[in-house]
Design a protein around this nucleic acid. Structure first.
Lengths: 124, 124
DNA sequence: CATTCATATGAACACTTGTTCATATGTTGA
DNA sequence: TCAACATATGAACAAGTGTTCATATGAATG
C-alpha cells in the first residue's frame, strides 16, 4: 500500500492481555502520522542499491548523467529515472551546462544516513 | 528486482562525453557490491511506515505483540509478520514469557538511523 | 535549418511487497 | 486432555517498484 494512503483503518485486536500503560506511553511518544510517512518515504529512496550507488558516487563530487551511466554500467535512461527520484526526495540537485547536466548532493545528511546504516550492517 | 539478484549486467553507455578522471575517482571510492546491497536492504526495512511505527514504539520500552497490535490498530497477525522482518534484519529481538512474546530493540543504531532521517525531512 | 547528442519521459513488463484470511503452534489453566 | 488464547505462518491478492524500450526535448554545431 502506498505510504500516503496508509491511514489507521479500523482493525481491532482480539487479545485480552493489554498492558494499557505501556500502550499509552508508546502512543504518547509517537509522532504525527505525517512525520512517520515522510520518514518511511525517505528510507524507501535509500532502499535501492542503484540509488545508494548514485548517492555514494555523488558524495565525493558532482557528476553528469553519462558519467554515472558509465560508472554503474547502466543506460543513461535508467540513471535519469533514478536521479529523478533522488531529486524529488530533495537528495540531489542538478546544474545545467549546455547539453550536460551535472548532479550533486542537495543534503548534508546523506552521508549521515548512510553512515548510520553502515554502523548497523558492520556491527559484529 | 531483488537486491541480491542485482549484479552489473552488461549495458554500455552510448555517450561520448565521459570525464574519465571523475568516473575513476568515483569507482575508487565505491565500496564492495555486498556492502551496497546490504545497505539497501537495511533501508528497505525502514522504508515502511508500519515498521517505522513498530521501531518507534520499541524505542522506549519492550512491548508484546498484542500491545503493538492495539497501538497500531492492526491485527496481531499483521504485526507478527512485520516483526519477523524486523527480527530478520537484526533490528529487534524477542523474549518469551509464557504465551506472551515481548519484543525490544536489538540494535543501538535504530535511534541514530531514524534521527538522521528526521534531520532530512525536518530540514527547511 | 538539420543533425547530433545528452538527457528526460511515458508506457509496459516482470517482479516484489504488505496485508488478509485461514490455519498452525505452543502455553496456560480447568 | 481439553479449551482458551497469544502468537506465528503459508498462500493469495492487490498494489507498488525498477528497468527497458521507444520516443521526446533541448542545446550545440555545422
Amino acid at each position: 500500500m502506498k505510504e500516503k494512503d496508509k491511514r489507521a483503518e479500523s482493525a481491532s485486536c482480539s487479545c485480552n492481555v493489554i498492558h494499557q500503560e505501556v500502550v499509552d506511553q508508546a502512543r504518547a511518544a509517537m509522532p504525527k502520522e505525517e512525520i512517520l510517512y515522510d520518514l518511511a518515504e525517505v528510507f524507501k529512496v535509500f532502499g535501492d542499491s542503484t540509488r545508494i550507488k548514485l548517492l555514494w558516487a555523488l558524495l565525493g563530487q558532482e557528476m553528469c548523467v553519462c558519467d554515472l551511466a558509465v560508472l554503474l554500467q547502466m543506460t543513461p535512461s535508467a540513471v535519469s529515472h533514478q536521479l529523478r527520484i533522488l531529486k524529488q526526495a530533495r537528495l540531489v540537485k542538478c546544474r545545467k551546462e549546455g547539453k550536460v547536466v551535472h548532479y550533486s548532493l542537495d543534503d548534508a545528511h546523506v552521508q549521515g544516513i548512510i553512515d548510520q546504516g553502515l554502523l548497523h550492517i558492520l556491527e559484529v
